[in-house]
Design a protein around this nucleic acid. Structure first.
Length: 886
RNA sequence: GGGUAUUUAGCUCAGCUGGUUUAGAGCACUACCUUGACAGGGUAGGGGUCACAGGUUCGAAUCCUGUAAUACCCACCA
């Protein structure tokens, strides 16, 4: 057969993916005879496209799921997508804007119709891209967080938490766009990096009780009519005497107290802060701490209202008022100082107007009580984080957990199931009819027939935190009763929950992972997963985060086209220890592709041999015995890496096994002379080694390995590698491996000698050893073949006219009549001598230290003594050889 | 500002409970080789006072303290 010298991924990838799908290898149903192994995918944004982060993340999941499948487990990887309210809504809004349609000109229903159209059009793209990567997801179980059932589940949970008393309404500062008259999410507020120029005004307020003034600094003098206190730092000696006194607000002369609060920075401005809870987030929090009233002086459109008490400002824009009031303050002698100042001002992404902090009623989840078990389970390692360093981060967050604001001022998402009457009385219920029913019970005789539903939607995480439960339909009314899920009737949940591993990015440890754990304990009475593998962030090679605006994110599908899915997968895993950022460089993919090609060519070599019934050469027997041991040693290492989720290390182990041990040593030993056949016994063994390697590599490189699995020997097509049996580590001969390594070292030294003497590998040499060496004896045939030797003989006399090397304490000589450069030889020997003398000195330093000899463990001292003896004997031998050279 | 990490070869990183030759790998680099699997290859080689300063110890890349840089998360300056 004639095979290309290069592996061509394009020919195999689609073919095998389709075949695996057709055979239903990815699908799994609960079964009684198999152990379950399940993973739920971190659902990517429904309208997203595959980026490098997804590639890394999903490759790791696929490696884990494929290995489990081969281990005979019932492997279930549930895929799906997230509605991602903010991101998706922003994209739909942008799309409409391009068409010249403003969101504000649409009704909610009209907007949602566009959004759903958008979702239908782009929603499946990312999942199709995952298939190109080789992801072996159970596609029959694909979910979307706004599927009808999922939607219902989210609503049910809201109602349930409300009824349990975990959900409440509270005031919160939101970002308000006065021009668009709409709330903005944090993501829609932009800050100029260099800040904006502004003026810091120092304004004095009169103390009521005496003829003394207190001066505060503010950027927003137009808000002073909303002041409810003056705050100073409790440790500030300058103002201690004023705490508890009353101060008069300029112009309106309202009395406000002077209070002490740690928040105040003594060194900023005058050290006095005016407290305006309605118009500043921090002031609001101070207000809460000190039980201060809230005076909201600004309307939705940014004009001042009657609460500011000064009729000349009613209905005037806040910036116009600022100008006027500065003038008034100056004239009245209140303005002490004006200075230029650079500050961060938030502007609306939509209108570029200055964002106004505005208090509004939002929905919150009380976190303290509901998160206790989630905190403890990670603390006690019931859920293990990999790498474990994230435990600290997790603990810190859970101990300082804040209540979770779950309402968002958007339309795309799960609409909050709260219903209001005209007076603002609220009922929470799954449906309007149910809400009305409850309302009538709570307000008998009101006669009201129509309630208005809350306009906001829920935070995206308030739906995705149910993901590991709801992908198995846990919140269906059949199982979800009285605030708990009874899984005894739900076969999927009973079998697949808790899932085995969650693979995700550390930046969403709190947003998502922690909350899934909370939901798991609250609704399933059990953790949602056993292990959490936190990947790193994929960055470019300069260490910058990959982003669209920087344009430094390579096109994932292009990469797959260029290097093959297997090449990209292994390339990414080569340098991605858990929790470490991955500095992505296309070179990694190149390395992955080269690896695939190396395996392909090893296959070409083996496949090209003619096989004959003939005696098995001695070196082949040795090679087989050695590789068998090496293989089993590697399987053991591999297993160890997997149990510790060191996926990158696992790949390195295989890379070495294949490239160095199998290709560079094993195949080179058994390779028959050109044109000659290989003996049957060796060939059969080689095929079985190759099969073992393909199995071990399959989770990492599914396409190439499946292809070769079928090419290597004739087998039925349905007899696929993807479902072949995984290898268990077996005992191996450690001594043999060590001895063989010594043999390889002899080969290396001979090659080295050839290199430095300029001898062709084709020129046959002789080797002399002083004394008998078991290792050399055992591997004589191997050494002869690999180093191209005529003979190996034991001698007692040191040969002259020879170059020499030392392995352990044994001397080797290669007689080279007339080719020895004595000066060069001496120089080399001297270098080695220096090294060994230095080494001996370092050992002696330890051994001559009495405290070491008496203090260290006996084994350690023994090792040092052995080192000393070895070094001494080496030095002796080197010196002798130097003398011999004259 | 609070928290959590990181700092080892030109680059990316291993080095797990302190001792296992005077610190390893991959990539990059250098020299040589190459018509019989693979130049996307082979053989060999050079390259590091383990960020800095102290301390603990018979012994520190490894443990402790401090300093300096960097990254991420949280909170954000009137």
């Amino acid at each position: 057969m004639s095979l290309s010298t290069k592996y061509n991924p394009a020919e195999t990838e689609d073919k095998w993916y389709k075949y695996w799908m057709d055979q239903g290898f990815f699908h799994s149903e609960p079964s009684s005879d198999k152990e379950a192994f399940s993973i739920v995918i971190p659902p990517p944004n429904v309208t997203g496209v595959l980026h490098m982060g997804h590639m890394l993340n999903n490759t790791i999941q696929d490696v884990l799921i494929r290995k489990a499948r081969m281990e005979g487990k019932n492997a279930c990887w549930v895929p799906g997508t997230d509605h991602a309210s903010i991101a998706t809504e922003a994209r739909v809004v942008a799309m409409l804007r391009e068409k010249g349609i403003k969101k504000s000109s649409l009704t909610r229903d009209e907007f949602l119709k566009y959004a759903w159209e958008w979702k239908e059009k782009y929603g499946g793209i990312i999942l199709e891209q995952l298939k190109k990567l080789g992801a072996s997801c159970d596609w029959e179980r694909t979910h979307f967080t706004m599927d009808p059932d999922y939607y219902k589940a989210v609503i049910k949970v809201f109602v349930d938490l409300y009824n349990k008393g975990y959900i409440y309404r509270g005031l919160r500062m939101i970002n308000w766009d006065c021009e668009a008259k709409t709330a903005l999410s944090n993501e829609e507020v932009l800050y100029k990096e260099e800040g904006e120029r502004s003026v810091l005004y120092s304004v004095r307020y009169k103390i009521k009780e005496k003829e003394e003034w207190v001066t505060i600094a503010t950027q927003r003098p137009e808000t002073i009519m909303g002041d409810v206190a003056i705050a100073v730092n409790p440790t500030d000696e300058r103002y201690k005497h004023l705490v508890g006194k009353k101060v008069l607000v300029p112009f309106i002369n309202r009395e406000i107290p002077v209070i002490a609060d740690d928040y105040v920075d003594k060194t900023f401005g005058t050290g006095c802060l005016k407290v305006t809870p309605a118009h500043d987030v921090n002031d609001y929090e101070i207000g809460v701490r000190h039980n201060l009233p809230v005076i909201d002086t600004i309307n939705e459109d940014g004009t001042l209202n009657e609460k500011c008490e000064l009729p000349k400002f009613f209905g005037k824009d806040r910036f116009a008022v600022r100008k006027e009031i500065v003038k008034d303050l100056r004239e009245a002698g209140h303005l002490v100082k004006e200075e230029d100042f650079t500050t961060r001002i938030g502007r609306s992404e939509r209108t570029n107007s200055v964002v106004e902090p505005k208090l509004s009623l939002q929905w919150f989840v009380k976190m303290k009580e509901i998160s206790v078990r989630a905190k403890d389970s990670v603390e006690r390692d019931e859920i293990k984080l990999h790498p474990a360093k994230f435990k600290n981060t997790y603990r810190h967050w859970m101990e300082n957990v804040r209540d979770w604001c779950i309402s968002r001022q958007l339309w795309w998402g799960h609409r909050i199931p709260a219903w209001y009457d005209e007076a603002g009385n609220v009922v929470v219920a799954e449906t309007e009819a149910e809400a009305l029913k409850q309302y009538k019970i709570q307000h008998p005789g009101s006669g009201i027939q129509k309630l208005k539903q809350d306009v906001d939607v829920l935070d995206t995480w308030a739906s995705s935190w149910l993901w590991p439960i709801e992908v198995f339909k846990g919140f269906n009314e059949k199982y979800f009763k009285d605030g708990r899920i009874d899984r005894s009737q739900n076969a999927d949940l009973k079998y697949f929950y808790p899932t085995d591993v969650l693979v995700t990015a550390p930046e969403i440890l709190f947003f998502w992972v922690a909350r899934m754990i909370i939901a798991g304990y609250e609704y399933m009475d059990e953790k949602p997963f056993n292990d959490v593998y936190l990947t790193g962030v994929v960055r470019d090679k300069l260490g910058r985060k990959m982003s669209k605006s920087l344009g430094n994110s390579p096109d994932a599908l292009e990469l797959i086209g260029k290097y093959g899915a297997d090449g990209v997968r292994t390339g990414m895993l080569f340098s991605s220890a858990a929790g470490n950022d991955l500095l992505f460089d296309e070179k990694l993919c190149e390395q992955g592709r080269n690896f695939a090609n190396k395996i392909w060519n090893a296959f070409r070599l083996v496949k090209g041999w003619e096989v004959a019934k003939q005696p098995q050469p001695e070196e082949n027997k040795v090679a087989i015995e050695w590789f068998e041991s090496k293989l089993n040693q590697s399987i053991g290492e591999l297993e160890d890496h997997f149990t510790k989720f060191r996926i990158s290390d696992a790949l390195h182990t295989l890379y070495k096994l294949v490239w160095d041990d199998f290709c560079s040593w094993y195949l080179e030993i058994i390779k028959p002379e050109f044109g000659k056949p290989i003996d049957d016994a060796t060939y059969q063994k080689t095929i079985s080694f190759f099969e073992a390697i393909l199995k071990l590599l399959h989770p990492f490189m599914p396409f190439l390995t499946e292809e070769l699995w079928h090419e290597l020997i004739d087998r039925k097509k349905e007899d696929c590698l993807i479902i072949a049996e995984w290898l268990k580590p077996k005992a191996f001969n450690e001594k043999l491996i060590a001895h063989c390594e010594t043999g390889f070292e002899v080969v290396t030294q001979i090659r080295n000698a050839r290199n430095s003497k300029g001898l062709s590998p084709k020129e046959s040499l002789s080797l002399s050893v002083n004394g008998v060496s078991k290792e050399v004896d055992q591997f004589a045939s191997v050494i002869k073949k690999l180093a191209n030797l005529k003979s190996i003989e034991a001698v007692s006399e040191k040969p002259t006219n020879a170059t020499s090397f030392l392995i352990g304490t044994r001397e080797f000589y290669i007689p080279l009549e007339g080719k020895v450069d004595a000066a060069k030889e001496k120089e080399d020997l001297r270098k080695e001598l220096d090294y060994n003398k230095g080494f001996l000195a370092s050992v002696m330093k330890k051994l001559s230290n009495e405290k070491f000899v008496s203090g260290a463990k006996p084994e350690v001292v023994e090792i040092e003594r052995k080192k000393k003896a070895d070094a001494e004997s080496k030095i002796k031998s080197l010196e002798e050889r130097l003398t011999a050279l004259g």
